[in-house]
Write a protein that binds this DNA or RNA. Sequence first.
DNA 1: TTACCTGCAAAGAGTTTGCAGGTAG
DNA 2: CTACCTGCAAACTCTTTGCAGGTAA
Lengths: 138, 138
Amino acid sequence: MSDNTEFVKKLRSVGLRPTKQRLKICKILFDRKNTFHFTISDLQKIIKTKIEEKVSLATIYNTVHSFKKKGYLKEISINSDKSYYDTNITNHHHFLDEETNELLDLDDNDISNLKIKKTIPGKKIKSIEVLVKIANNN
Amino acid sequence: MSDNTEFVKKLRSVGLRPTKQRLKICKILFDRKNTFHFTISDLQKIIKTKIEEKVSLATIYNTVHSFKKKGYLKEISINSDKSYYDTNITNHHHFLDEETNELLDLDDNDISNLKIKKTIPGKKIKSIEVLVKIANNN
DNA sequence: TTACCTGCAAAGAGTTTGCAGGTAG
DNA sequence: CTACCTGCAAACTCTTTGCAGGTAA
């Protein structure tokens, strides 16, 4: 937390200079126990609320994109007007609550051994993402 | 084809009047053997190319949304700047080729019996969508 | 000092909406 | 005739880009 060394290393490893704006973004994204699902505007609101200083949209996009490229953030495949990101970069899937639009993690082993039986010549599988849409039980 | 009766019925069943613009959209969407994955702008281009007459964007959006609401089209969950739709409304999944950005159908039984072991109290599963990202084999 | 970064504002892309004239029933 | 529909353009939202001043190394 007060130890920014880890965040400085993280930023350098993606080729970004550790500026104070980026360190704040790091703190919000990575200084937490639980998985965090967010959109860019969620992140912007949190920065505005929790932190005395403003960080411009351009900087937020740029930083999030760099983390995503390096694999420190995952982009979640749901159809939405916005892009959703996830700080949980392990192999896992999602519930999407259609009522509240909330995302919930679904562990890889909460799914019976998922296997794709069809193959495409000359192509290999890069990732498998499962989205389970849920709604109220009535 | 020359028999529009089916399309007229389809349009009425979603609460839309069978206008000539909408019948053209129907012809493109539903008068085909194979599944059709498209974006609104794909559809617009096809209309412009194959059909002598112009159909406005507003009409295309409105018609596609009505079909989707009624379940005659499925929206595919991928993260993209655009929305993708699918004329295959059976239970199935997709390959997404990361090289070409093309979508390919993946039959439900091309996936080993998919089962979600985790449940959320008070919620039930509405749908399960699997997206398999593929890329060149090198 | 140099290369990179920031904030701002403008520009882009996809989608939605308001409205005046047109058409199905 | 009435309600609904069409095309157009403007408006909106999210995202990207250009640029002038600022900062890390």
